[in-house]
Design a protein around this nucleic acid. Structure first.
Lengths: 149, 149
DNA sequence: TATTGTTATACTCTATAACTATA
DNA sequence: TATAGTTATAGAGTATAACAATA
């Protein structure tokens, strides 16, 4: 089996397992990624966030409605240009992100269970180089862009 | 970034790139995986194939219609039980699989470009152990099972 | 009655384009 | 006129359940 196939296979598996785990927090992978991005860069406009994640702005709306409805983020109207909303994570949002962090660590531990600590570091170094070589944005999952099958 | 996240990120990226490449052959990842499975185990019934790939049998039908319409596979009615069809790759199907193999090698070369041959081997060993630990079927991409986001 | 493959149906997710309110 | 965010719409992909043929 090629490395590329193993990456695709393990990636789909890891994504599915992660979705199950954060499902117990009432979240989904896209919501989690957005919450993370909003917390990391406060005051982004929706256009900016859409560009960062690589998705059409219209697709963002329902996700943000969802996050806002749960009190995880808020949209504040930009006074300088009232067409724009500035996005912020709420206190509840950052608390939730901490819980997501715990889940992520447990998930990583589960996925890499058969490897020693040294092997995990070596793996991270190899994967990191591949990701950098292909220009993948740190922390942004390409699942936001549609891949038709 | 955790190994699990890097795997998910790179997996989605690799899957997308592969889809683009085999798109030039007029194929998609699910069609390719099915053709491979049918060629690897001739005379499977549709139920057996569905079980192997982890998808509902009803979902198989349209894909098989497509493959059969292109002359890549054929359904032969099983004389012992005329409800069942036995699946076979045609000569054109196995030819196409050879072309897919060429594409896969080029794709793998592209994905692992920044790594030396020794590093590629080490990566394959690490990934193979993870896949085995989680009981992933050799050569079967879990993308056949729906992951809701 | 049970099983194989097929079809019908309903649901989710998506991109595109039209819309509104502001500029 | 142009732009930010929103809504409408249509298309693709999916699982479930109903169906016809065969056992």
């Amino acid at each position: 089996m090629t490395n590329a196939f193993l990456l695709a296979q393990l990636g789909a598996y890891a994504t599915g397992r992660f979705a199950e785990r954060i499902g117990e927090l009432g979240l989904t992978p896209p919501l989690t990624g957005m919450l993370r991005a909003i917390a990391a860069t406060p005051a982004m406009s929706q256009q900016e966030l859409a560009g960062h994640l690589g998705m059409p702005p219209s697709r963002l709306v329902a996700f943000l409605d969802d996050l806002e409805g749960r009190g995880l983020i808020e949209r504040r109207q930009n006074p300088a240009d009232r067409r724009q909303s500035a996005l912020y994570a709420t206190a509840h949002g950052t608390d939730t992100l901490r819980a997501v962090g715990d889940v992520s660590r447990a998930h990583d531990e589960d996925i890499t269970a058969p490897l020693s600590p040294a092997e995990r570091e070596r793996l991270a170094a190899l994967l990191g180089r591949i990701a950098a070589h292909h220009g993948l944005t740190e922390g942004v999952h390409p699942g936001y862009r549609t891949v038709r099958h």
